[in-house]
């Protein structure tokens, strides 16, 4: 069939900016995530934790119990609807409780959303379009950030709304309007740091097993070691060894209350640490994507 008979013709309209390509990458990534049953199992684990907190808030707001009992129950679950001297923002704590599910989900996502692009050569297809490697990287970072936000920020905000809805007035929301901002700032730090680290790690390691080992070492083992070192030496600076605590400290820098002496200084150190590692990771990522030769 002649090409003219096939009615091929050039596009006469105005093409979108290549930055729209990043959004397409996010959309494709989300489709990849939700198509896999294994993902739903991990998401289910996260949902279990959410349901636990959702039920806790429901019970605490709907059943009559003394203030002391209420505090004790909240303390058991490490949740505090209003930060007190020794209790942190409960919604931020909830986000941290989701960390294992987030970690497993991201270990999986790293291999699926980024590793396969390098291993199976799909990167060539992306870069042979109008998008540059910057748009590709931004797209992948946004995709991972969406997964993180879906598991942490979104349910945390739902819990905040739930607490307000189950009380008899809007007073809770008015008096605690800073809480969702703290959730959002912590969420922003989580999304930024986790996405940069994961995409870089996955671009280099590519396969699921090495990514899972490194990722779990970073988030589980470092956390455990940090706790032991902090308790044995009675020095809170060891919190900086735990990436989750580092991110929480930086989140507090944005909009948080300081509970321990020297926490603000530690938060600045955490910021420096995270910013440095993210900058190094980004440089390594740009180098890695650049290293792929696209034959046109």
């Amino acid at each position: 069939m002649g090409i003219d008979i096939a009615h091929y013709h050039g596009w006469n309209g105005k093409l979108h900016s290549p930055w729209w390509g990043s959004l397409s990458i996010v959309r494709v990534a989300m489709l990849q995530v939700f198509r896999r049953k294994s993902y739903w199992v991990v998401i289910g684990l996260g949902v279990l934790i959410f349901i636990l907190y959702w039920s806790l808030i429901y019970i605490m707001t709907q059943f009559e119990m003394g203030a002391r009992t209420q505090t004790d129950v909240f303390r058991i679950f490490g949740f505090s609807p209003v930060p007190t001297e020794d209790m942190d923002n409960g919604y931020v704590i909830f986000m941290q409780r989701e960390s294992i599910a987030v970690m497993i989900l991201l270990a999986f996502s790293g291999s699926l959303l980024v590793g396969t692009d390098f291993r199976m050569g799909s990167l060539t297809f992306y870069l042979s379009r109008r998008i540059d490697r910057v748009q590709y990287i931004v797209g992948k970072l946004l995709a991972v950030s969406t997964v993180v936000a879906m598991m942490t920020v979104l349910p945390a905000l739902v819990l905040y709304v739930e607490y307000g809805l189950f009380t008899s007035s809007t007073a809770y929301w008015r008096q605690n309007w800073k809480l969702p901002i703290a959730v959002l700032s912590y969420g922003a730090v989580l999304c930024a740091v986790l996405s940069i680290w994961l995409v870089t790690l996955a671009a280099y390691l590519q396969r699921m097993a090495p990514i899972a080992i490194t990722w779990s070492s970073l988030f589980v083992m470092c956390g455990q070691l940090s706790t032991f070192l902090r308790e044995s030496s009675d020095n809170r600076d060891w919190d900086l060894l735990d990436p989750w605590r580092c991110m929480r400290l930086v989140g507090k820098l944005c909009f948080g209350t300081w509970q321990h002496p020297g926490e603000e200084t530690r938060a600045l150190w955490a910021l420096l640490l995270l910013a440095t590692t993210c900058a190094l990771a980004l440089a390594a990522l740009v180098r890695r994507v650049r290293a792929v030769e696209v034959v046109t």
């Binding site: 390691l205 396969r207 097993a209 090495p210 080992i213 490194t214 070492s217 083992m221 470092c222 070691l225 032991f228 070192l229 044995s232 030496s233």
Partner: peptide, 25 residues
């Protein structure tokens, strides 16, 4: 395989932790 290299990461971290614990304490 890459797994060998990656497994070394937690092992080295553990060793450093133990060295610190022993000599600091």
């Amino acid at each position: 395989s890459a797994s060998t290299l990656m497994v070394l990461v937690p092992l080295v971290a553990c060793a450093l932790f133990l060295v610190y614990e022993r000599y600091d304490l």
